[in-house]
Every structure is written in structure tokens, then in C-alpha cells.
Design a protein around this nucleic acid. Structure first.
Lengths: 114, 114
DNA sequence: CTAGTATATTCGACTTTGCGAATTTTCGTA
DNA sequence: TACGAAAATTCGCAAAGTCGAATATACTAG
């Protein structure tokens, strides 16, 4: 079962492991959006967008609703936004760690130089 | 910059997008562990384990410390555990949604059958 | 220096992913 | 029915990921 859970998690990560798909998820953050709108806002190729949406749909990250000519997408579970937000914090924490590391190096240079 | 951030997130997701690497991260959850211990506990091929560890190291998810003959690994930032925990909640929420969907289908079957 | 243990790297086969061009499908409407 | 718009699918190719076998490297102890 734990093995299953890890496979499941890996699939979710895999589904999110592309800048374009992250952009799509973030774009859906504030509500339903049609495929066309996504293409326009994110500046994507039509086929490419559709392929990425297929990935997200197949992993149930996104659900689609047909209305006449077009298809509207939305996030199936807003919990995923939490994941992205946690990662944002992670990003900045990593960034500041890198910065202080650089500062350390600067200091050392200064000391050895003298 | 937002584009950068998305690339960064995508890389983190990519690094976690494999059951074995998730298992490794979870194993490191409660503290430093040597490569050998990971191999034993998770039942991995030596080369394979090392390859996955390389991926995690290259994305800075994990840091390594050499002590004599062996190499100890630990999580660079425990925030990642949060991500995994959020996903666990997501997993169960999805699971229960699926279950109630199945129940609905059962009910419908029962009604149409009569 | 030699042997042994722990870990990393390289190699070759294979699978998967990502892309745009072209095509197809699905609607709504004339 | 025929046309146009929106979206999905297919195709061919390049790039990336995964695996185990074999090999290399780093360290320790004798």
C-alpha cells in the first residue's frame, strides 16, 4: 500500500514536472478557464497546450467541462495550490541559503586576501 | 522571474517524480541515513540507488556527508516533507471521492434494475 | 602495498517525454 | 448540408530518463 501511495505521488509529481503544466495549474488557480484562454494567456501552441492538458486530465489534476464549442478546465482539488505555495517558500528558503553561502565566500576571500 | 520560478518548481517535481526517490526522501524523514542503509531498507540495486541519489543531490533536495568509508544522506530542507504530507491528504481525498462516485454508480444500478 | 567494503560512474539497451506540423473530431450556425 | 471555430489526436523525430552489468574510485585495515 505504501508502495502504491508512492507510485501515486510520483505520478502527481510527474504530471506537474513541466513549466507549462505548472503555468496551467497556476492559471486555473482563480477559476475555470477555457482551453483557448489558456493558450492565449500563456502563449502556447494549440496542440502543445492540448497535450499538456491531456496529461493533467489523465492524472485527475484538472477536470474539463464542455460548453458548446469550447472546453473549460478547472482544478479538481485546490490542495494542489497548497503544494505549489509550499514550494514557493522552499524556493525562497533555498535562495536565501544560497545568498548567505555567497556572503560566506565573500568574507573568506576578504580574510585570506589581507 | 515567474517563468524562472516555474522552471525551478518543475525541476523539483521532476526530481521527486519517481517512486524510489520518494521512498528515499521518506526514509530520510527521520534523520541522516547512509547509502548502504537506504539500499538495504528499500531493497535497491546499488547502482540504481546511487543514480537516484545523484538526482536528488543535483537538485539539492538531499545533502551528503562523508564519514570514512560511507556517505550519509539527509534532507536539505524539511519543507519537502510538508509537500509529501499534503499530497497524502490529497491522495485520501481523491480516494474518498472515487469511493463515493462508486457508491453513486451502485445506487443508480440499483434504481434502474428495479 | 594488498584486500575488502562502500559508493559512484560509465555503458548500452530500452522506454518515455516533448515538440510542431498535419489531420481529425466536435460543435454551432448559416 | 456545408462551413468555421475550438479542441483533440496522430506522426516523426529528438531529447531525457531508467535500468542492471561492469568498472572505477575512495577509504580502511592488515
Amino acid at each position: 500500500m505504501s508502495q502504491e501511495l508512492r507510485r501515486f505521488k510520483a505520478e502527481i509529481f510527474q504530471a506537474l514536472a513541466h513549466p507549462t503544466r505548472i503555468a496551467i495549474v497556476e492559471a486555473l488557480r482563480h477559476g475555470e478557464t477555457s482551453a483557448g484562454q489558456l493558450i492565449e494567456r500563456l502563449g502556447l501552441e494549440q496542440a502543445n497546450a492540448s497535450q499538456h492538458l491531456t496529461v493533467l486530465r489523465s492524472k485527475q489534476i484538472v477536470i474539463s467541462r464542455k460548453e458548446g464549442n469550447q472546453v473549460f478546465y478547472s482544478l479538481r482539488d485546490p490542495v494542489l495550490i497548497e503544494v505549489l505555495d509550499v514550494l514557493k517558500r522552499y524556493f525562497y528558503s533555498q535562495l536565501s541559503q544560497t545568498m548567505s553561502m555567497l556572503k560566506e565566500i565573500q568574507k573568506e576571500k576578504a580574510t585570506t586576501k589581507r
